[in-house]
């Protein structure tokens, strides 16, 4: 049994409605923004699932739904076999011990008015584990590579990388089974980013915690993930083992995404084959019919506008949501 199972998870947000102007009225088409659309995923204990996609693809909303910071519109979230999407009160609070989050912005994720030891004590106090809190706090600081003597300082006394370590320590305070990492290194400089990535790998090896690693940087996700899910406009369009997806991407969007990453080696960069997508991401309040990627896809055919491609295991053993890829592989 997987640690976390998500089935057909969907989230609609109300679009900003307008009483006077031209915007959509409540209840009319376009009044809802579908941020996450029919997503099903699994994470096993101790593994890292990377979720990649560009801004607006719904990856952060997905992460926050797993933590129940946002309530899903429909679908099932099962954690250790227990459905958690409707938990309330004490049951919800107990569940929160098992799933934690690390945020992107090392500046807004720590309360500027609290000392580091208070920040780390908060999860312990809330969950009634006040006993030995002082010991646990210094243990946590040591674990993330900070001097326990820093507990009395305020967040603004630390650099971005150090703050992100404090954020990681807070997420680990309750010994969770799963940590959602929402762009944990994208605000950091390259040299600091590498330090934090190494810390995360080390912590996972030592603690056996599972990660849901959300990021837009494809190289970073590749480095840390066992499996990858690629999202586009609220849907998972391809998923599989990290090495498989990066060495042999199937979905046209995955191909384009990978080909758009520049290579720091100038000679390789000049020889790089590039697929430059035309146009922008369509609006998620009025997504294209059928395959949402078809408006930017250079392979699109009639069927792509007519039917939504499902994420299915094709005969080549790959899970891709593309009519053309799946048709080709079944005729092979």
């Amino acid at each position: 049994m997987a640690l976390l199972e998500i089935e057909n998870l969907t989230k609609d947000f109300d679009a900003p409605t307008s009483y006077f102007g031209s915007g959509p009225k409540r209840g009319q088409p376009g009044a809802l923004i579908r941020a996450v659309d029919d997503v099903s995923l699994e994470i096993s204990a101790g593994e890292t699932l990377g979720v990649v996609g560009e801004s607006g693809c719904g990856k952060s909303t997905l992460g926050r739904m797993i933590l129940r910071l946002i309530d899903p519109t429909s679908g099932v979230i099962r954690f250790n076999g227990q459905e958690i999407q409707n938990l309330q009160g004490r049951a919800l609070r107990n569940m929160r011990q098992r799933i934690q989050i690390v945020f992107q912005d090392p500046f807004s994720s720590l309360d500027p008015r609290m000392r580091v030891q208070e920040i780390l004590a908060e999860p312990l106090i809330v969950q009634g584990q006040k006993r030995n809190a002082a010991k646990r706090i210094s243990e946590l600081l040591t674990m993330v590579g900070l001097d326990p003597a820093f507990g009395g300082r305020y967040p603004h006394e630390f650099s971005g990388g150090q703050r992100q370590r404090i954020g990681i320590a807070r997420a680990l305070a309750l010994n969770p089974d799963l940590v959602v990492l929402d762009e944990p290194v994208s605000a950091l400089d390259v040299s600091i980013q590498a330090q934090v990535l190494n810390l995360l790998s080390e912590l996972q090896n030592n603690l056996g915690v599972a990660f849901l690693f959300i990021a837009h940087d494809l190289a970073v996700v590749h480095h840390i993930s066992d499996r990858i899910a690629v999202m586009y406009l609220g849907r998972v369009i391809e998923t599989g083992a990290a090495n498989q997806i990066y060495s042999d991407p199937q979905h046209p969007y995955t191909k384009a995404l990978l080909s758009a990453v520049p290579d720091p080696n100038p000679q390789k960069e000049r020889k790089r084959e590039r697929i430059v997508l035309s146009g922008d991401l369509p609006s998620s309040s009025a997504p294209p019919s059928g395959c949402t990627f078809r408006t930017r896809c250079w392979l699109a055919e009639d069927i792509c506008a007519a039917q939504i491609p499902l994420l299915v295991m094709n005969p080549n053993g790959r899970q891709v949501a593309c009519h053309l890829v799946n048709a080709r592989s079944s005729s092979d």
């Binding site: 030891q117 002082a134 010991k135 706090i137 210094s138 243990e139 600081l141 040591t142 674990m143 993330v144 590579g145 900070l146 001097d147 326990p148 003597a149 820093f150 507990g151 650099s159 990388g161 150090q162 370590r165 600091i192 330090q195 190494n198 810390l199 080390e202 912590l203 030592n206």
Partner: peptide, 22 residues
């Protein structure tokens, strides 16, 4: 107290390279 209990477990997990930045 924090310092002492920290010293007891220091080095059990954190690698030295990581402590450098801090």
């Amino acid at each position: 107290q924090i310092r002492e209990s920290g010293a007891a477990i220091a080095g059990s997990v954190g690698s030295t390279a990581l402590i450098d930045e801090a």
